[in-house]
Amino acid sequence: MSVFYNLSVKEVKKETKNAVSVVFEIPEKMQSEFNFIPGQYITIQKEFEGKPYRRAYSICSSPNVKELRVAIKEVKKGIFSVYANNKLQVGDTLEVAAPEGKFVLNTVASNSKNYLSFVAGSGITPVLSMIKSVLENEKNSKFILVYGSKSSDETIFKKEIDNLVSKYKNQFEVHYVFSQKISDKAYFGRINLKVINDILKHKYNKITFDDYFLCGPEEMIDLVKETLLKKGVKKEMIHLELFSSTSVKKEVNSDLSGNATITIVLDEEETTIDMRRDEIILNVALAHDLDAPY
């Protein structure tokens, strides 16, 4: 089971019209518990109307600055994300579990590597932590970022990323892809095969990349991964984190009366539970003391 610590909110910063970043105050005695590797996430727990809700958010700060910052994008009807974007204030207390996750980039000062990352939307959060860490710790490495968003105004951390490009001109380059606004400083559309091939075949055809980091919607990740594999990139060089799944419409039985038996698999352990058909599976799992992170 995850252990939750009561942490005070140190800062709430509006990053875009529908996203905030939140910094937590870490007491000295808890510093070691909240050490993290770039790419990891924390799980936040809060009760609403007597029911506990857990949500996982990736850390976007660098381990070097001893700051625990996450980005929270408001999701329509998302109980916690709506609260965080509209009501969360400095001084509020939230229950937070220690960092975890395997989508990570361990930096080594002596490295001389080339990294390429494709991200979309809030998928930037874990990768931003990786970027900062590489730029600060691996002076001979280079990081290329391809970042898809709706527009410049809705690009989370755009100002911070642009400042990093200016500061680390020889190490860091970014290519924006805007789906709803035309800009002479960005691709127009989504991260599609045309954009991927332009990056790989033209802009960086003379560079051999050591690792690829993909984070965002399932459709984008699948396309980039498939393209890389077809080009001969080894599977172990491709690291990915799924931030949203493709929605597939299927005909379902809308009758929620009666009970159902479900089997939940967590950490390779199965738990079978009888529940009402109108209940939410996540809430049932938490009520049975299962360590469900989302």
Rank of each mutant, 00 (worst) to 15 (best):
K29A: 09
E67A: 12
V248H: 09
A109V: 10
P52W: 08
K29V: 15
K14V: 13
P99W: 05
E236L: 03
V82A: 15
T263I: 13
K51Q: 15
V90M: 06
Y83A: 06
E138W: 03
L94Y: 08
N205P: 11
M275A: 08
K73Y: 02
I191D: 00
G91C: 06
K10G: 01
K194R: 08
K46S: 07
I161C: 04
S244L: 05
E268C: 05
N86Q: 06
F24S: 00
Y147P: 01
E11Y: 04
I37N: 04
K158Q: 12
H239N: 14
N137H: 11
Y187I: 08
D210A: 08
L223T: 14
S8I: 07
P38K: 09
S152I: 11
I264F: 12
I44Y: 01
F24G: 01
Y147D: 01
L240Y: 11
K225A: 07
K230Y: 07
L240M: 10
L200Y: 01
E218I: 10
K102M: 08
E136N: 15
D278S: 09
T246I: 13
K181I: 09
E270R: 07
I156E: 06
Q171C: 09
H175P: 06
E49D: 15
K203M: 09
K203H: 14
D289C: 06
P126Q: 10
D291W: 10
S151A: 11
N283S: 07
S183E: 12
D278H: 09
Q171K: 11
G101Y: 00
F143A: 08
F118A: 09
P99T: 12
V134W: 01
Y294R: 10
S152G: 14
G258H: 03
L116Q: 02
T43L: 04
V65A: 07
K46A: 08
N140K: 15
D211Q: 13
S133W: 01
S254V: 08
E25Q: 08
K102P: 02
I124G: 00
F188K: 13
K225S: 12
R190G: 03
V134Q: 03
S179V: 05
T272N: 02
C215V: 04
Q180C: 04
I79M: 10
S245L: 14
F143I: 04
I144L: 12
L266P: 11
V165Q: 03
V174N: 10
Q31Y: 06
Q40H: 15
S117T: 03
L105I: 04
I42A: 01
N85M: 00
K142I: 15
K158W: 02
I280D: 11
P27G: 06
L240A: 09
M1P: 11
N35P: 03
K10I: 02
Y83P: 05
D289K: 11
G216N: 00
D210I: 07
V248M: 03
